[in-house]
Design a protein around this nucleic acid. Structure first.
Lengths: 98, 98
DNA sequence: CATCTATTTGGCTATTTGGCAAAATAGAAC
DNA sequence: GTTCTATTTTGCCAAATAGCCAAATAGATG
């Protein structure tokens, strides 16, 4: 495997890995509609707010979301709505885990 | 989060998770061209063959690949070529990890 | 300044993952 | 049947992950 190819796949895998969690998919799909503050996402997800915050960090580090402060609230938004299109394709698969 | 929605996201996440590894992305992209036997994939990837076999198991469990025996060789093939389209989208992202 | 509110960070534990090497298996060939 | 070859499975270990709670932080407001 060539080195630059390796790097490119590693970069892609990092983003895909950030998406590879039910809660984070829920968050991404929710943000598709409109930007949302963390506390609202916590209500939607139902986990501890620190857990939600960590999920958002993962998404932010992958470049999938960005935040905007408005008073006390941080509003998160999708940076790349296209990433969700492929979820529909994935939905049709029939695997042992699925 | 409603229960059925939760399940749907868990199912999607399982497939995405299976894709979320550089070696597995390499394998998937290689299989896009044509079906390939394990030993050939081992040469391409460069890891131990048991490692490659495990990656293939992950992909198989997710429903992303399937195998066909021909003599001593097992030929793996993509079951859902569409899953690779979104990698191009992901490639454009600029994150801390990417 | 102190205080309140929204969010992040750190610490902890349990679980999962990726890799190699050795042993086991499945089918082909003798 | 035995043997050979391709592949999978098992065992082990180090590293990464997800979750909660408690503590820390950043702005807003008094």
């Amino acid at each position: 495997m060539k080195q630059d190819l390796k790097k490119r796949y590693a970069a892609q895998a990092a983003v895909i890995k950030a998406m590879a969690h039910p809660t984070r998919l829920l968050i991404l799909n929710s943000l598709k509609k409109r930007e949302t503050c963390v506390c609202e996402l916590r209500d939607l997800v139902g986990d501890d707010i620190s857990t939600v915050s960590k999920h958002l960090l993962v998404l932010k580090n992958a470049g999938l979301v960005a935040a905007r402060r408005e008073g006390n609230w941080l509003h998160y938004r999708l940076t790349c709505p296209c990433v969700l299109e492929f979820a529909a394709c994935v939905g049709g698969l029939k695997g042992k885990n699925v």
